[in-house]
Design a binder for these strands. Structure first.
Lengths: 239, 239
DNA sequence: TAGATATAGTTGTATATACAACTTAACATT
DNA sequence: AATGTTAAGTTGTATATACAACTATATCTA
């Protein structure tokens, strides 16, 4: 067994030195921090090394730099709190509940101008339209209304989505580059309401998801959830 | 009038060149990207410049580097697509819109058993209850119903929340340890509906937020948004 | 006094060089 | 066949140097 002691890089030493002063409150917000040349003398390093330390701390939001003036401790920003959106089947299974799906529709369609613009395709491209109800313990929990560009994701229309969710097929078939989510609260239409077995005066949580592969929109989906039976939750711990 | 054409730094040229290839799909996930020395030849720059470009893209999550092997396009993690929830005032200001707030209530209250359990405190602890309407361009966009434990966050009840949002005061006063979010779609109560100036048959997007400081629940908040005027959105690129 | 100019200090970028640490593949030895 | 060695290529860090761009201050000039 060998216990190696890995030396900390110099630029990291300097970064941690500065972070320590900020964390301890010794260097308060808007206060000036030593210039690159001052740090060069203090730590006996080259200016490129102090430059890297200060530049990275600036990129990370701890410092603010003004050319010709100096470097200052940044003001605290409200951190952003991520909320994760999972694949519905995984989510249900993680609760040790029974997942099932009902495929209402899976067919080729022609697109209108609005959809073509949203998916960044020509109007002559044919898409596959799938409509699926996802159930937890037999109770509807998500209505998935999806459009897929088979030029990007081939073979989509031939899948059995009672075995594997569209999302699972998509990520397996073509690795995702980018995912956009929009979460809304809406009142459901009559058909959505009945398909999800929702009561009157029940709101609907809608997630609109758009996924990119190879620089193109592979798929768009509207995921409707009954407000009384579904919620998004996330726990965020910094560091 | 002088129209200066600011030259793009070389390291940025290289970064954008690589980002373009990734975005277009030309360079797929896990695919190898040119080495630093190859980029040196291609762009006629020094290795330090290509190193900076690749290093920054790695810090930003677009690339993965392995010493002795090479640099590769990063993979997207399929199962966790974070959605960020921001401070409402920052969000409105980032749209270059006018933010304003109306404080309806800010007073000490006694808690019942349910709240005591939710905030993990004794029933004899007094909390401050604040009720604030946040407006974008004068139009209500969030009703914030908040309870704050002043044992954890002192001086909360004495703030002027038309100047600074409760959230901003909280994070400044006591650094957050943990934040929990739950997003729901509900039908608003009569008072919520009228305070947010919502129409009939309009759903409400509710975010329940609980924040911890020093191991204790510092504050809980219910953030009500009119469904027609507010949505959560997130764009997820490789981390 | 008002405006122009020089100057010193700061950050921002870029180069050429060097060596260390690591990985893979080819080769040599046992 | 298994093991050790070498070599080439890669990333990671660090230095010394250079110049450009910017800012604030002091100084000079009309």
């Amino acid at each position: 067994m060998k216990t190696e002691l890995k030396a900390e890089p110099l630029y990291l030493k300097i970064k941690n030195h500065i972070l320590g002063r900020i964390d301890s409150g010794e260097w308060m917000t808007t206060m000036r921090v030593p210039s690159e040349n001052q740090l060069v003398k203090e730590f006996s390093v080259s200016r490129m090394t102090t430059n890297r330390a200060l530049r990275e701390l600036t990129d990370e939001g701890y410092l603010v730099r003004v050319a010709g003036v100096g470097t200052f401790v940044a003001e605290l920003k409200a951190q952003s709190n991520p909320l994760e959106i999972h694949n519905i089947a995984d989510e249900i299974r993680s609760r040790h509940h029974v997942y099932s799906a009902e495929v209402l529709k899976c067919e080729a369609i022609k697109v209108n101008d609005k959809i073509a613009a949203y998916m960044n395709i020509d109007t002559d491209v044919t898409l596959v339209h799938s409509l699926i109800i996802h159930k937890e313990q037999g109770i509807p929990i998500q209505l998935e209304d999806r459009l897929v560009n088979e030029d990007v994701v081939s073979g989509y229309g031939d899948q059995d989505f009672t075995k594997k969710t569209p999302y699972e097929y998509l990520i397996k078939q073509a690795p995702l580059q980018k995912v956009e989510h929009v979460v809304k609260a809406i009142m459901p239409t009559g058909s959505t309401k009945s398909l999800l077995d929702m009561s009157d005066q029940e709101a609907c949580l809608l997630i609109e998801r758009r996924t990119w592969t190879k620089g193109r929109v592979a798929s768009t989906a509207k995921l409707y959830h009954p407000g009384s039976r579904y919620e998004l939750s996330g726990l965020f711990k910094p560091e």
